[in-house]
Design a protein around this nucleic acid. Structure first.
Lengths: 138, 138
DNA sequence: TTGATTGCAAACGGTTTGCATGGGA
DNA sequence: TCCCATGCAAACCGTTTGCAATCAA
């Protein structure tokens, strides 16, 4: 997701580009870390100190509904991911850090029908273990 | 997990077997559905109408710490799974139903080191789509 | 100008905690 | 008897909502 996409979205849906929205979008686009709403709030307020929690939540759900970011629940925590390409997630069981894992690093699972007649249209793999930094620290 | 395991746990850790704990364990052992704490509370209270929310949460964390049940967050909802064997989960995007998927139904992912030097010790696959019942109802 | 967006604060829902009572071992 | 376990209610935490004030278009 990029700030230009925000402009396009604003034009398409007659939305306003406020400083708050711009700051949130820029922050999300700048990090590969998967921030929680609270982290987004404090990151944004470091630059533009008058954004409220409600605005952060509003903007996040707007971006999510427009498909510019993805919502991901990892270990019971709500996070937002601006990497829209297919990838998996790695969660460090020591420090809680979340990292993206290249799609090709994991054998693909064929989307389709399961033995129980369910139709699978998407799936996600969450890997758990120790991140490189925590391994060194062991 | 079985009621006998509860007895063994009680003896090993000097814990008491109360009617509430017994009811919770029996309910968990009886269902393949992945109940939330609230569902467990009302199921248990249908039989033994004086179990409090706090007792349900206490007992669940006790069982979890003893390894008799597994905690699983699916779509932001806390659920408990008494199926301890390796398996995956399917979440129906229409009705929210959660089903176990046989481990062998999905190609295994080799646990080990990733390109980014993370060490993976476990992983979970969450499949999303339509369950058999919702497919028919479409 | 005007309606979308904002900040604030209250409400909310699920989970946790503190504490006095009660009941297994 | 002695604590462990319980019920209750309050506290807590992240998320949502209602509303009057504000500001981008």
């Amino acid at each position: 997701m990029s700030p230009q996409q925000l402009d396009a979205l604003a034009r398409a849906r007659h939305l306003k580009i406020t400083p708050q929205r711009r700051a949130i979008v820029e922050y999300l686009a700048s990090t590969e870390h998967h921030p929680t709403p609270e982290e987004i709030l404090s990151a944004v307020n470091r630059r533009f100190p008058l954004t409220s929690r409600a605005t952060v939540y509003n903007t996040l759900s707007l971006l999510k509904e427009s498909g510019l970011i993805r919502e991901v629940f990892l270990a019971g925590v709500l996070r937002f991911d601006s990497n829209l390409g297919p990838h998996h997630h790695f969660v460090c069981r020591r420090c809680g850090r979340v990292e993206d894992i290249r799609w090709e690093a994991v054998k693909p699972f064929p989307v389709g029908e399961l033995p129980g007649k369910q139709v699978v249209d998407s799936f996600e793999i969450t890997l758990r273990g120790l991140c490189a930094a925590c391994r060194r620290r062991t």
